[in-house]
Simulated assay, not measured.
Amino acid sequence: MGALTEMAKPSGKAADILASHGCTGCTDVTGFGLLGHLVEMTKPSQVHAELFMQSVPLLNGAQETLGAGVTSSLHAQNARAAASVRNFDQVLQTHPQLWPILVDPQTGGGLLAGVAWEKAEACVQELRENGYGSTAIIGKVTKQDHAVGPIQIL
C-alpha cells in the first residue's frame, strides 16, 4: 500500500462503520505515532492493551526507511512512550526492526479504534468491503492488573 494512497482516503465512511459496530473510542494516528495514541486511549480508562505486532499494517518502504535511519524530528520524543510498554526489553529482542514504526510520527491518518471483541471481525470485514483494505485487528484491551505499563506488545 502506498503512503499517498492511504493518506488520501477520507475517514468519514470508516467512522460511520465503526460507530455502527459500537466503537467506544477512536483517534486518527498522526504525530504521536501508533504507540503514543494507544497510550493516550488506554491510560484515562485505566485499562491495558495487548498489541499484536505482526498484525500492524505497514506502508511499503516504511521498514526500510526507518532501518536506514531516516526519522522525523519527533521520533525521539515519541520514543518516550516506551516507558508504557511493560515488555519493552522483549520487544527489542523479538521485533527490533519493527519497534521504531510504533513511535514514528510520519503518519497521515488511519484510525485507531476500540470495538468490542465479539464485533471486531465483522467490523473489519465491513471496513475492508468499503475500501479500507489494510484494516486489521492489531490488539485487544485487557483489564488493568497493576503491572508496569499499560501496553504489552506480543
Rank of each mutant, 00 (worst) to 15 (best):
T107N: 15
V39H: 06
G12H: 13
N87P: 08
G67N: 06
L111V: 10
A116D: 13
Q63Y: 06
S73L: 03
T94F: 12
F32S: 07
G131H: 03
L18W: 08
A113W: 10
E129M: 11
D145H: 01
N130Y: 03
I101F: 11
W99R: 08
K13V: 14
V56L: 10
G131E: 03
H146C: 05
L18K: 05
M53W: 04
T94M: 14
A15V: 10
D16E: 15
S20K: 14
A19T: 11
Q106I: 11
H48Y: 04
E50I: 08
M7H: 05
Q77P: 00
A14F: 09
S84E: 15
Q63G: 02
Q152A: 08
A136M: 10
N130E: 13
H95C: 06
L59S: 03
C26M: 14
K140Q: 12
L74I: 00
G31N: 13
R86Y: 06
L154S: 14
L34H: 03
H48I: 00
R80Q: 09
S73I: 07
V47W: 00
W99G: 00
G67F: 02
C26S: 13
M53A: 15
Q77T: 02
A76D: 12
A83F: 06
L38C: 10
T135I: 03
D16N: 12
G31K: 14
T71D: 00
M53G: 04
A62S: 15
A14G: 10
Q106C: 12
S45N: 10
A116G: 01
A14N: 07
D104L: 02
T27C: 13
T42A: 15
D89Y: 06
G25R: 09
Q152E: 09
H75Q: 14
T42C: 15
W117S: 06
V29K: 11
G114R: 13
